[in-house]
Design a binder for these strands. Structure first.
Length: 332
DNA sequence: CGTATTTGACCGAC
DNA sequence: GTCGGTCAAATACG
């Protein structure tokens, strides 16, 4: 495994450098033509991502991010089995029967540092710790409905060491609560089965790209079966990138990426697809107004592009047409 | 007054 | 013993 890494790293280095270049170009272009703010945010994210990845590769350290990068290259099915065996240093104390997933959330420009980091769920802070080797403390959150509904989902939020605009959000467990807020509720409710014993498609949020602030998602399934949901916004390979030619990262592609991957991967032979997730467009539409009110949920579902690689996982999701998306409050 | 956050204590894993 | 995660009393907030 270590041997293959060399080639992969070189490849990655190439790709990332290339991509970074292009993203910069796009950024300039956007600046001049004043396109949608989404473009800016995305480009910003792209750059941040590349910066990080490159620094990792150059230093050869930081196993954590490395595994995130690895997902870029390798399909989901491969990463997990070896993951448990070889990457033990990173996950030395994995909790059995607990899924872990880390997102690297970049605060959009202008956003204050105490970003709400609203991901659609209601979290309650229950602790904070200074972490060895980290400049910033780590906050511990659990689902508000832990006691009322026995929801065991938790998350940890920590500001990135060197980039204060990036937050590392680690989700643990899954929501079993029915949140009145967010599509999570609807999606979760529609999931075929929620049985604890089954490693079904985890929380729908898993496959989400937090748009207003979203950056990167790393998924680590540490469960018995270990399924991985690499919901990578840019699931390109080095080849594709090369072929990109002149139109690299066109804005439309980015949007399509999300819009397209979403229903195609989630939708199953369900009759009512017209109202199916109609709010997704609403979300995209409302995005990019520079407004980041705290309850502003600029999220969207982007299905893992590689989900098609794992036939086992078929999401069948449908949304209650009556589902009110305005109901984003956390109260029940 | 009920709920959320803060913060030191506690506990289990290394 | 150290470290990370959680608990819970005290406090803040509405």
């Amino acid at each position: 495994m270590e041997k293959g890494m060399d080639w992969e790293q070189r490849c990655l280095l190439d790709v990332l450098t290339h991509g970074k270049d292009r993203a910069k170009q796009l950024q300039k272009h956007l600046t001049s033509s004043l396109s949608t703010q989404m473009g800016f945010v995305l480009v910003d994210d792209i750059l941040g991502c590349y910066e990080k990845a490159l620094s990792v590769l150059n230093s050869g350290a930081l196993s954590e991010t490395k595994s995130a990068v690895t997902m870029l290259e390798s399909p989901p099915s491969v990463a997990n089995s070896t993951d448990a065996a070889s990457d033990q240093k990173e996950v030395s104390k994995k909790r059995k029967t607990m899924s872990t997933r880390t997102e690297y959330v970049k605060a959009s420009a202008g956003t204050p540092q105490e970003v709400p980091l609203d991901d659609g769920y209601c979290w309650r802070k229950y602790g904070q710790k200074d972490i060895l080797g980290s400049k910033h403390p780590r906050g511990y959150y659990r689902c508000t409905h832990r006691h009322s509904q026995g929801c065991l989902a938790t998350k940890q939020v920590q500001k990135s060491d060197d980039d204060p605009t990036i937050f590392e959000v680690t989700y643990r467990g899954r929501h079993t609560c029915k949140q009145s807020s967010h599509l999570a509720a609807a999606v979760a409710a529609a999931l075929p089965m929620e049985a604890e014993s089954m490693e079904k498609p985890e929380q729908p949020e898993e496959a989400m790209l937090n748009f207003g602030t979203g950056l990167r998602v790393k998924t680590e399934e540490l469960e018995t079966k270990e399924e991985i949901f690499p919901s990578f916004p840019f699931p390109y390979s080095s080849n594709e990138l090369e072929e990109g030619g002149s139109n690299i990262f066109p804005e439309s592609m980015l949007e399509n990426e999300i819009m397209a991957s979403f229903p195609s991967a989630f939708v199953s032979p369900v009759s009512s697809e017209s109202n199916y997730f109609s709010m997704s467009s609403c979300h995209v539409g409302s995005f990019g107004l520079g407004q980041t009110s705290e309850s502003d949920l600029t999220e969207i579902i982007s299905a893992p592009a590689s989900v098609t690689n794992s036939p086992d996982l078929d999401f069948s999701v449908e949304l209650d047409p009556n589902f009110s998306f305005d109901n984003l409050e956390c109260f029940s």
